[in-house]
C-alpha cells in the first residue's frame, strides 16, 4: 500500500470520515488543556503583566499561518507532478484557513503591541512580513475563485503558489533589510538561550500542537467539502449534457 492511495478521492473520503471525529476531538482536548493552563495557571509576567498570556493565541496562529502556506506549496507540487486532484483541492482548502491564522496573528499582535509598544501597529519587519503574507493569500484565493475550469484553476494557482513562495521569501528578507524592528526574537528555541521560561513554555507547546491539529481538522473538513462540491458540479454538467 502506498501513500498515494489516499490521493484517490473515494479512499480519501472514506479515511477522512473515519479520522475526522478523532482529529477534531484531539484538537479540542489539546486546545482546552493549553489555553486553560496558559490563561489560568501561569503566573503574570513581572514586566508584561497578564498581557503576556495572549502569547497562547498569537504564537501558534503565526506559526500556522506560515505552515499553511508550506502545506499549500507541497499540495501544489504534488498536483503539478502527479496530477492528484485531492492534493490540489487540499491546497485550495488550506488557503482561507491560512489567511484566517494570519489575520488572528496580526490582530492578537496588535492587541499585545498596544500596551507593550504603545501602538497598535508598527512597521516592524515581522508584522510587515505577515501583512505581505496575507496579501499573497488573498491573491491566491482570488485566482482560485476567478478561474472557471477546475483543472485550469488548479494549474494556475499551483504555479502561483510556487512562484509566490519564492517572492514571499524574498519579501521577508527585503523587509529585514528595510527595517530592523522592535519585535522580540523567537519565543521558543531548542538550542539557544530560552526566551520564554518553562512556566510559559509548557502550555504553549500544547497550544501549538492544538492549533496544528485544528488546522488538520479544518483542512480535512474543507477538502471534503471541495470534493463534494466538485461531485455536484460533475453531476450537473452531466445533467446538462443530457446523460442523466
Amino acid at each position: 500500500m502506498s501513500i498515494w492511495e489516499y490521493a484517490n478521492p473515494k479512499k480519501f473520503m472514506q479515511t477522512s470520515t473515519w479520522a475526522l471525529p478523532w482529529v477534531s476531538g484531539l484538537a479540542v482536548v489539546l486546545l482546552a488543556v493549553g489555553l486553560i493552563w496558559g490563561f489560568f495557571f501561569t503566573p503574570e509576567d513581572y514586566k508584561q503583566g497578564s498581557t503576556v498570556k495572549i502569547i497562547y493565541l498569537h504564537v501558534p496562529s503565526a506559526m500556522m499561518a506560515v505552515s499553511a502556506w508550506f502545506m499549500m506549496l507541497v499540495g501544489s507540487l504534488i498536483w503539478l507532478i502527479r496530477r492528484h486532484h485531492v492534493s490540489a483541492l487540499a491546497a485550495k482548502a488550506a488557503a482561507p484557513v491560512g489567511l484566517t491564522f494570519t489575520v488572528i496573528g496580526l490582530v492578537t499582535g496588535a492587541i499585545w503591541g498596544q500596551p507593550m509598544w504603545g501602538t497598535w501597529w508598527a512597521w516592524d519587519p515581522r508584522l510587515t512580513s505577515f501583512l505581505i503574507l496575507g496579501l499573497f493569500y488573498l491573491g491566491y484565493i482570488a485566482l482560485w475563485a476567478a478561474v472557471e475550469d477546475a483543472d485550469t484553476a488548479a494549474d494556475l494557482t499551483s504555479v502561483l503558489c510556487i512562484v509566490g513562495s519564492v517572492f514571499a521569501f524574498l519579501s521577508r528578507y527585503a523587509v529585514l533589510f528595510w527595517n530592523q524592528g522592535l519585535h522580540q526574537g523567537a519565543s521558543l528555541s531548542v538550542d539557544a538561550e530560552q526566551h520564554v521560561s518553562n512556566v510559559y513554555a509548557f502550555p504553549l507547546w500544547f497550544c501549538i500542537a492544538g492549533f496544528l491539529v485544528l488546522f488538520v481538522t479544518l483542512v480535512l473538513l474543507r477538502t471534503r467539502t471541495e470534493i463534494r462540491s466538485r461531485r455536484i458540479r460533475a453531476l450537473m454538467s452531466r445533467e446538462r449534457a443530457g446523460v442523466l
Binding site: 505581505i132 496579501l135 499573497f136 488573498l138 491573491g139 482570488a142 485566482l143 476567478a146 478561474v147 485550469t152 502561483l160 512562484v163 509566490g164 517572492f167 514571499a168 524574498l170 519579501s171 528578507y173 527585503a174 523587509v175 533589510f177 528595510w178
Partner: peptide
Amino acid sequence: GLKRGGLILSLIVLPMYVPTLIF
C-alpha cells in the same frame, strides 16, 4: 483568460513587487 482579469492581476502582482520596491 479572465473577464475581470485586471483587478486580480494587480492583487497578484503587487505583493510580488515588494522586494523590487524596497531595494
